[in-house]
Write a protein that binds this DNA or RNA. Structure first.
Length: 419
RNA sequence: CGGGGUGUAGUGUAACGGUUAACAUUCCUGUUUUGGGAACAGGCGACUCAGGGUUCGAAUCCCUGCACCCCGACCA
C-alpha cells in the first residue's frame, strides 16, 4: 500500500485525555480512534493488526480442533434466566434494551448460554463428542469504569472457545492442549517472554482457573511469578496451600503487575445441567456434557503488545502482527530514487509480501519519525547513496541500526522474518 | 458505585473578573529547501461542553447537568 493513499494521519501529540501508553501511541499513529470512554474504532492500520492477531488465534484454535462459528450478539432474556445470569444483581455489566413489542433483550457479554443451548440440537450421543467451537465476536460489557486505553473497553472483539466433552478426562486433555495453543498465540504475538500462565480463582464457575498474565505496569492484576518455571499465581489465590500444591516456594516468587491477556476455565456441568445439554452414553444413559471456556480479548492483546514492546519513538510490532511486513521509505518522490522504490515495492508485493511504501512528498525526518511511530519492524530506505552502491539500506526498528544488504541478503533477511 | 480532577481552534497549551480570546502545531498559498519532524512570507480555523445565575462587564466566580481522566470498589 502506498502511504500517500492512507487517509489516516499521524500526530505529534496524543489527546490529553489519553493516559495509557497503548492508546496514546495507537491514536498518534492512526490505528484507532476513541469514540467515548471504553469505545474505540479501528482504522485501516489498526484493523490490519487486529486481523493479524485474529489470524494467529484462528490458526492455533483450528490446530487443536476448534470449529469457528458466529453466534448472535442479541440475547433473549428467558435463556439467561435459566442459568440465573439475567438479573442485574447477579451480572452487573449487561447492556440491555427493549424491543418494540416490549420484550427485553441483552447484548452478549459472553456466550456460554446461547452456545450450550445451540448444541442441544447437535449433541445427542457420545459419538457426537467432543466438540470445540469458537468465534470472534464483539462483546458488550457495561463496565463501571473503562480504562487503560484498549485494555479494558465496553465493546471489544473477543475470541471465545467452548469445549464440550464426555467426561473430566476428555476435558482435562483438551484443557492441557489449550494451554499449549495459548502459549503459541502469545509467543507468535511477541509477548511470550513476558506472559505467564497464572493460577487463579475460578470466579463463580469453578474453584480455580488459569489466566495468561503479561507483566506490565499498565495491568490491573497483581501476580507472583517464577521466571525459571514460567508460572505464576494470582494474588487472589496466593496462599501457602496453593503454593504447596504447585510445588512452589514463596521465596522464589516475584511480585508484579500484569494484564490478563487470556484465560481458560473449567465449567464442569454448570451450564449443561440447567440448559439440559445431555448426551446418551454407551448404556443409553443421559449424561451432562462437561464444558470449558477459553477467552482472548483481541484488542486487549493488541494493546498489551504496544505496552510491552513500544518505546519512546513509537510502536514496535512483532513480525506476525505488524500491519505490513516491510516499510519502504522513498527519500525522493521522483527520479531514480522513486523508480527504485517502486521497483522493490512491486517485486516484494508480487511475491506476497505486504509492503507499505512511503511515497509521500515529505521530508526525511518526518518519514523516519512516522515510520518509527507506526512500528513496522523491517524498514528499507531507498536513497541516492544506497542506489549508487547497488545496495539496500536496511533498518532494524528495534535495534535502531542500519545495514547495507545486497539483493540476495535482503531477500533472505525478509524471508527469514516472514514465515 | 464512592472519592478526586479537568472541560478553551483538528491537536497541545495560555489568558488578574476588563480591548478583537493568545501561542505552538496541524491545515491552505507562495518562494527557497530536501537523509531524522526545514526557513521565510501570507492565510483559514473557537458563540471558551450545555443550561441557568452573580456582575456595569464572565473563558475566569456560583449552581445544575453532561462528558472525559485518575484512585478505589467491581471484573461474570
Amino acid at each position: 500500500m502506498r502511504q500517500s493513499q492512507i487517509f489516516t494521519k499521524t500526530r505529534r501529540e496524543a489527546p490529553s485525555d489519553e493516559v495509557a501508553k497503548n492508546s496514546q501511541l495507537l491514536i498518534r499513529a492512526g490505528f484507532i480512534q476513541k469514540m467515548t470512554a471504553g469505545v474505540y474504532s479501528f482504522l485501516p492500520l489498526g484493523l490490519k493488526v487486529l486481523n493479524n492477531i485474529e489470524k494467529i488465534i484462528r490458526e492455533e484454535m483450528n490446530a487443536i480442533g476448534g470449529q469457528e462459528l458466529r453466534l448472535a450478539a442479541l440475547q433473549e432474556k428467558a435463556l439467561w434466566e435459566k442459568t440465573n445470569r439475567w438479573d442485574d444483581a447477579v451480572v452487573d455489566n449487561w447492556f440491555k434494551t427493549t424491543l418494540k413489542n416490549g420484550n427485553e433483550m441483552g447484548l452478549g457479554f459472553t456466550h456460554e448460554e446461547p452456545l450450550t443451548s445451540l448444541m442441544r440440537d447437535h449433541i445427542r450421543s457420545f459419538r457426537d463428542l467432543p466438540v470445540y467451537a469458537y468465534q470472534f465476536q464483539t462483546k458488550f460489557r457495561n463496565e463501571t469504569r473503562a480504562k487503560s486505553g484498549i485494555l479494558r473497553g465496553r465493546e471489544f472483539l473477543m475470541k471465545d472457545l467452548y469445549s464440550f466433552s464426555r467426561d473430566e478426562k476428555e476435558h482435562d486433555e483438551f484443557y492441557e492442549k489449550s494451554k499449549i495453543a495459548y502459549k503459541n498465540v502469545f509467543n507468535r504475538a511477541g509477548i511470550g517472554e513476558k506472559t505467564y500462565i497464572t493460577f487463579a480463582s475460578g470466579g463463580s464457575f469453578s474453584k480455580y482457573s488459569h489466566e495468561f498474565q503479561m507483566l506490565t505496569e499498565a495491568g490491573e492484576d497483581i501476580i507472583y511469578y517464577n521466571k525459571e518455571k514460567g508460572v505464576a499465581v494470582n494474588k487472589e489465590v496466593y496462599t501457602d496451600e496453593v503454593l504447596a500444591e504447585m510445588g512452589l516456594k514463596k521465596s522464589d516468587m516475584t511480585e508484579g503487575k500484569a494484564v490478563e491477556v487470556g484465560n481458560i476455565f473449567s465449567l464442569g456441568t454448570k451450564f449443561s445441567e440447567p440448559l439440559e445439554l445431555f448426551y446418551k452414553n454407551e448404556e443409553g444413559k443421559n449424561i451432562p456434557v462437561i464444558m470449558g471456556s477459553y477467552g482472548i480479548g483481541v484488542p486487549r492483546l493488541m494493546g498489551s503488545i504496544v505496552e510491552a514492546l513500544g518505546d519512546d519513538k513509537g510502536i514496535v510490532w512483532p513480525t506476525e502482527v505488524s500491519p505490513f511486513a516491510v516499510h519502504i521509505i522513498a527519500m525522493k518522490t521522483e527520479g531514480v530514487v522513486m523508480e527504485a522504490a517502486e521497483k522493490l515495492y512491486k517485486e516484494l508485493t508480487d511475491i506476497g509480501i505486504e509492503v507499505l511504501l512511503d511515497d509521500r512528498d515529505a521530508r526525511a525526518g518526518e518519514k523516519f519519525g512516522d515510520a518509527d511511530l507506526i512500528g513496522i519492524p523491517l524498514r528499507i530506505t531507498i536513497g541516492e547513496k544506497s542506489i549508487a552502491e547497488g545496495k539496500y539500506e536496511f533498518n532494524d526498528r528495534i535495534a535502531q541500526k542500519t545495514e547495507l544488504f545486497d539483493k540476495d541478503q535482503l531477500m533472505a533477511y525478509i524471508g527469514k522474518h516472514n514465515v
